[in-house]
Structure formats: structure tokens, C-alpha cells
């Protein structure tokens, strides 16, 4: 059997040697490969339209004049694009200050989540200790109460700690566990790594922290990148936490600050969309650059078979 069959659809294609080293494809296989590529492209293209559309619509709204926005017929391409809206939003609210505040919270939280959840998940996934399974269920059940009913006690807690009007309620908890979602996600990935791999290291007298840092973590880059991305996005767009815990206007974050463009009876749609688009850029850039991890995959796959 020719390997060419595998070269495109294989999830591990990236890890395989590049095409030139493959033996020449035989006729039928090549037809199949081309057909597969066409199918994939067709599916991707048709889905893409669905997923791109809202973003284009947001851009279009950001560029419209109020009159055009009020026009009865909706148009995707504005007649008279108001690129100035993207500049106006910087003077309408202290955009840079808000961005700085948001960045501090986001990067602080990311650091906390990555450090903390990767450690804790290691324990839940690969170490045996009494009470582990029970605590894991407790961990999961912290996700099952709707935020509405723990809002006030959480507020009272941070109030008693004297943390209100600081970034502490938004950042510090990330260092203590990093969230049940992330712990669970990492646990699932840690557990796919063959047990023998670490057991032998352990018998060799390797310390647990070294097994974690030297063997496990390097194998989990894609999922760590995923968690970093989720955390970034969650923090960057969160307006509810800042709304409740921050009162000093100087500490306002972007997502919260942008809400000012919506009043009881009216809204500055153009500014709101322009602001939302600018604030979405960092997430997109981050996503685009983190893809490296998804594309590259695990170069060490050889040790896993």
C-alpha cells in the first residue's frame, strides 16, 4: 500500500515527512486524494460563509452613518464608510487606559491559570491519593451552580477580604486552581499519555515535579495553548466581574467600558461595534499565532505508540 493515501487527510500529516519523500502516487489513489481535497475545500468554504458573516456584519455596522443604520433596508456594504469611527472611539472613552487595565487582568489571570491548573490537573490525572475521586466530583460540581445565586456571597467574600476596587478578585483566584474547566480539560489530556512513560521515570527516582515539567508538559503544548487562548478570551471579554468588583472608574476594563455606548433608549451602535472590533483584535492575533501549536502537533509522537 502506498503511503500517499495518508499524506493529506491524516491528522498526523504534519508530523510526517513532507511530500517529496513519498513514493509517486498511483492513479486511483491520486484521484481519490484530489477528490478528498475538493470535498474538504467545498465543505470548509460553505461553512466559512456562515462563520464569517457576523463579523462582516459587525464591521459594516461600525462603518455606517447613523442615518444609514436607520435605513429600512439593511445593506452589508455601507454607502459612505465612516472609518473615522475607529478613531472616534478612542476619544469617546479612555480606550487606552481601559486596554491597559484589561491587559493587566488578562495576563495576570493567564499566568495563574496556566501555572495552577497544569499542576492540579497532574494530580487528578496521574497521581493516586485517597479522596481524589471524591474531590474530583466536588471540583466538577463547582461548575453546576448558576452564577446568579453565588454572586452576592462572592461579593461579600471579596468585600470582607478588602479586595474590592482592586484587580485582586479577578486575578488572585486564578492562581488557586485555575478553574474547574481547565483542570478537567488538562486532566483528560494528561491521562492519554501512556502510564509506562512516567512509571519508569518514577522508578528511576525522578521527582514528581520533574516528571510533570520535563515529560508531561512538553507533550501537552496544544492543550496548554488552547487553555491560554480560552483564558485570554474569557478575561478580555468579561464585563461582569469588573462590573461587580471594580467601582473606581480608573480601573474600568474594555468590555465594561464599551457598555457605555448603550443607553436606556438609544445606543451608539457605530462606536459600540468599532470598539468591539478593535477589542476583538488581540484575541484574533493571539489565535492566529497560537495555531502553530495546533499545526505542529506533538513532534515526540514516536514515544507514545
Amino acid at each position: 500500500m502506498s503511503r500517499s493515501f495518508l499524506s493529506s487527510p491524516s491528522p498526523a500529516g504534519a508530523a510526517l515527512p513532507a511530500a517529496p519523500t513519498l513514493p509517486p502516487a498511483r492513479g486511483r489513489a491520486r484521484v481519490r486524494r484530489v477528490a478528498y481535497q475538493v470535498l474538504v475545500q467545498a465543505l470548509l468554504l460553505s461553512f466559512s460563509a456562515l462563520f464569517l458573516f457576523p463579523f462582516l456584519w459587525m464591521l459594516s455596522t461600525a462603518l455606517k452613518t447613523p442615518q444609514e443604520m436607520f435605513a429600512a433596508v439593511m445593506r452589508l456594504i455601507p454607502r459612505d464608510p465612516q472609518w473615522g469611527n475607529f478613531i472616534r472611539v478612542f476619544s469617546a472613552i479612555p480606550f487606552l487606559r481601559y486596554t491597559l487595565n484589561t491587559a493587566i487582568i488578562t495576563f495576570g489571570t493567564m499566568a495563574g491559570v496556566l501555572l495552577s491548573s497544569s499542576l492540579v490537573a497532574y494530580s487528578f490525572a496521574r497521581l493516586r491519593w485517597p479522596g481524589r475521586n471524591l474531590l474530583f466530583v466536588v471540583l466538577l460540581s463547582t461548575l453546576m451552580l448558576p452564577g446568579q445565586v453565588i454572586l452576592i456571597p462572592t461579593f461579600i467574600l471579596f468585600s470582607n477580604l478588602g479586595w474590592l476596587d482592586s484587580f485582586a478578585p479577578l486575578v488572585v483566584p486564578a492562581f488557586f486552581g485555575g478553574g474547574a474547566f481547565n483542570i478537567f480539560l488538562l486532566r483528560q489530556f494528561y491521562r492519554t499519555i501512556p502510564f509506562d512513560l512516567t512509571e519508569s521515570a518514577r522508578i528511576d527516582g525522578c521527582r514528581e515535579i520533574h516528571i510533570y515539567a520535563r515529560i508531561i508538559l512538553p507533550l501537552c503544548k496544544p492543550i496548554l495553548a488552547t487553555i491560554a487562548l480560552f483564558t485570554f478570551m474569557g478575561c478580555w471579554n468579561d464585563f461582569f466581574g469588573p462590573l461587580i468588583f471594580l467601582t473606581n472608574p480608573d480601573l474600568t476594563t474594555l468590555a465594561l467600558g464599551l457598555r457605555a455606548f448603550q443607553q436606556q433608549h438609544t445606543a451608539q451602535w457605530d462606536l459600540m461595534m468599532a470598539g468591539a472590533l478593535i477589542s476583538a483584535l488581540p484575541t484574533l492575533v493571539l489565535f492566529f499565532s497560537f495555531q502553530r501549536y495546533f499545526v505542529e502537533g506533538i513532534t515526540l509522537t514516536g514515544i507514545k505508540g
Binding site: A111, W163, D165, A213, L251
Partner: peptide, 27 residues
């Protein structure tokens, strides 16, 4: 190896430590 692994994290932590006090005293 571990020290190398956590270097970026440490930088972030330091940034955080620097950022928090003005925020805390700001109120």
C-alpha cells in the same frame, strides 16, 4: 529545565505584582 519553563510565567507574575499595588491603593 523547570526554571527555563517557568521564566515567562515568572515575568508575568512580576508584572502582576507590579500592577496590583497601585490598583489596591487606588481606592
Amino acid at each position: 529545565p523547570l526554571a527555563r519553563f517557568s521564566a515567562p510565567a515568572l515575568v508575568l507574575l512580576l508584572l502582576l505584582a507590579l500592577a496590583l499595588p497601585p490598583a489596591v491603593t487606588g481606592c
